[in-house]
Design a protein around this nucleic acid. Structure first.
Lengths: 137, 137
DNA sequence: CCCAAATACATCGAACCGATAGGTATTGCC
DNA sequence: GGCAATACCTATCGGTTCGATGTATTTGGG
């Protein structure tokens, strides 16, 4: 069954069904961050993301499971099967390379978020800073 | 000619060439924001984005021009040709619907950025806030 | 004891988006 | 003339998210 967004939230106005604005790369960042604190299985992760973001971020299973597989392939995650009452859970944890990747990703996010913030505030200080550092001339 | 990122920045480790992380929707947001302050032509906009973001955001012509056309098609921008010394510039300004769109986009950005920030800081207050507002249970 | 709901895993394709690479043409400077 | 900078534009490619869909087990209400 599909997970509905909380009732208060209006659906994205354009009837877009893919790649919503600003969410590119966010699932990976969030998954790595949450798993770096505690090993979890896929379904648990889906719930955790929604709860942790106060319902703002809701990545369904269709987004999370393929991502977990991809991250494991790349060596950023490792999994082990845990039998729980006749049912089998696949629990993921972040590997050392995964933690490195997470650190890089967080840095990238912060830099971009700061840049966008600067532009939205019409700030001139970004320009002054860049000039001082010789990044632009 | 392609625009190179500043020398200090390490290139994205995976040899990705398209749709880098976290930049989805950002070009549109930035273009609307900058044009809402001052009408500009395409080439000018490309420079302005780089300068305003201190070299962090560099959207080349190949990203900006198609975006301008798309936004004009949707009625968010209007253009007029201005001949300048035998050369012709296409100057864009934000329409009223465009300003509405900008406001919505800024709101969306802020909400998502705040959510990601919360998760990165391991904050529990997002959960408490959502509980108080009944967004999750 | 039956059935609905929740749990748990998983795949696939549609639609979309940014950027590289390519192209044309003019202007100004040395 | 040669070259950089200005100014515009498009085709195409790779990569991404998410809805739809499917299977199977456990739990709880009546």
């Amino acid at each position: 069954m599909a997970y509905l967004k909380p009732p208060g939230n209006l659906r994205r106005m354009s009837n877009r069904r893919t790649n919503p604005d600003f969410l590119n790369g966010v699932p990976e960042l969030v998954v790595l961050e949450l798993l770096s604190r505690r090993a979890m299985y896929g379904y648990e992760l889906v719930q955790a993301i929604r709860e942790r973001s106060g319902g703002e971020l809701t990545f369904g299973e269709g987004a999370v499971y393929p991502l977990l597989h991809k991250l494991e392939e790349r060596g950023h995650l490792a999994s082990r099967r845990v039998p729980v009452g006749g049912r089998s859970r696949v629990v993921y944890r972040v590997t050392r390379p995964g933690k490195k990747r997470l650190a890089e990703t967080v840095g990238e996010w912060r830099r971009i978020a700061a840049s966008v913030q600067d532009i939205l505030q019409g700030g001139e200080h970004a320009i002054a800073k860049a000039l001082a550092e010789g990044r632009i001339r």
